[in-house]
Nucleic acid binder design. Structure first.
Length: 368
DNA sequence: ACACGACCTTCCGC
DNA sequence: AGCGGAAGGTCGT
């Protein structure tokens, strides 16, 4: 039984938001259906033009972390039913109405109290390039992730590509995370807490699992947190200003300016943080700051200038805007866009059939 | 402050 | 077919 609540696609597009490299934990189980772990449970998500549908598997195995819910609106059952009746469904059984807690978990994770449409309008007004690009990429929003998962996932991301990062994150969960439940023969695990990652033998184990030099970063960072702080320290950074938060994070082994900005933006409520990676560097040089073309490398100074430029252009939610352009620049989405156009224009029945299990990587093995 | 090179491993393109 | 280079960087010189 699917449960649902109202949410227009322009406010949230699952396919891009869940697969653009913010989180590495979501898989497309069936076309349009995304499965992943959130708040200690397995969630299956899908959507149509004006609603999000979901199912959950497994009981909550831990209390949700404290949420800052200030200003987050409640979705009442009354207007849920109203929305459904608009679609020709008079009412829905009590069982299928999602609970307030479930809805709140999703609204918090997707930050649905922030109006993305308004933000897109504002960014488009001040930036023609954004306006052009964003027309084909609506509904891309920042997730509000768990900071522990976010931090350790992005320590894995250095000098690495998304498919391998996903694989490493998965191994981290399977090896050190609590098991939640089996779904269709596949075992889902929570992301591990900091403590098990701080054991002395973890570096060696992770090397054996193919983490390379990042094995040490993960183990060292976990040890550092357990020694100088505690499990909840990362969450407490949500109420600290951006710059101070970034400085704190950069004390961790394997966390430089870019990873620190990712964590600030994606789990610590710093919407102004702009992570500058090779893609953003290219985008900035090509479309915004031509002088960057002469630079030999991305120095600390230039890194700061790029972030400042985008904050000046896009404002307080610059990090959110950056992720729209970043996603539009990802190869996989460029290809999807062009194949969509192709499908619209000329070919019928040429759409690629996804027969792969959702367990296999989403990379394209050309079947020639 | 800035520029290099090393670093693990996988994947993609030629 | 097999190899070179890059991959959402960071660290040490």
């Amino acid at each position: 039984m699917w449960k649902s609540f109202v949410c227009p696609r322009s406010e949230l597009k699952l396919s891009t938001t869940l697969a653009c490299g913010q989180s590495f934990r979501w898989r497309e189980k069936n076309p349009g259906e995304w499965i992943g772990v959130l708040a200690g449970r397995v969630w299956l998500l899908s959507q149509d033009d004006d609603q999000i549908y979901f199912k959950t598997f497994g009981n909550s195995i831990r209390q949700d972390k404290p949420l800052s819910n200030v200003g987050r609106k409640r979705q009442t059952k009354a207007n849920l039913n109203t929305a459904l009746s608009d679609k020709g469904v008079s009412s829905i059984p009590e069982d299928n109405v999602c609970t307030a807690a479930e809805k709140e978990t999703l609204r918090d994770y997707f930050q649905l109290s922030v109006s993305l449409v308004e933000l897109y309008n504002s960014w488009s007004k001040s930036d023609l390039n954004f306006h052009q690009t964003a027309r084909n990429f609506d509904g891309i929003r920042m997730l509000r992730q768990d900071p522990v998962e976010n931090l350790f996932s992005f320590i894995c991301s250095s000098n690495n590509h998304i498919s391998r990062i996903s694989q490493m994150v998965e191994r981290l969960c399977q090896t050190y995370g609590d098991k939640i439940i089996d779904v269709d023969g596949y075992s889902f695990h929570a992301f591990p807490s900091v403590k098990p990652l701080a054991s002395d033998d973890v570096e060696q184990e992770l090397r054996a699992l193919g983490f390379g030099y990042r094995a040490k970063y993960i183990n060292q960072t976990a040890k550092h947190i357990m020694q100088y702080h505690d499990e909840n320290w990362l969450y407490s950074l949500r109420s600290l200003p951006y710059k101070e938060t970034k400085t704190e994070l950069m004390k961790l082994c394997g966390v430089g300016a870019k990873v620190a900005d990712c964590v600030c933006l994606m789990s610590l409520d710093k919407a102004e943080a702009v992570p500058v990676d090779t893609h953003v560097w290219q985008i900035a040089a090509r479309d915004y700051m031509p002088k960057l073309k002469q630079a030999k490398s991305l120095t600390d100074k230039l890194y700061g200038e790029i972030g400042d430029h985008f904050r000046g252009l896009w404002g307080d939610y610059a990090g959110w805007a950056h992720s729209v352009l970043f996603t539009a620049d990802l190869k996989q989405f460029k290809e999807e866009k062009s194949s969509e156009k192709l499908t619209e224009k000329k070919c019928q029945g040429k759409r690629k059939v996804e027969s792969d299990s959702f367990l296999t990587r989403k990379g394209k093995k050309k079947v020639k």
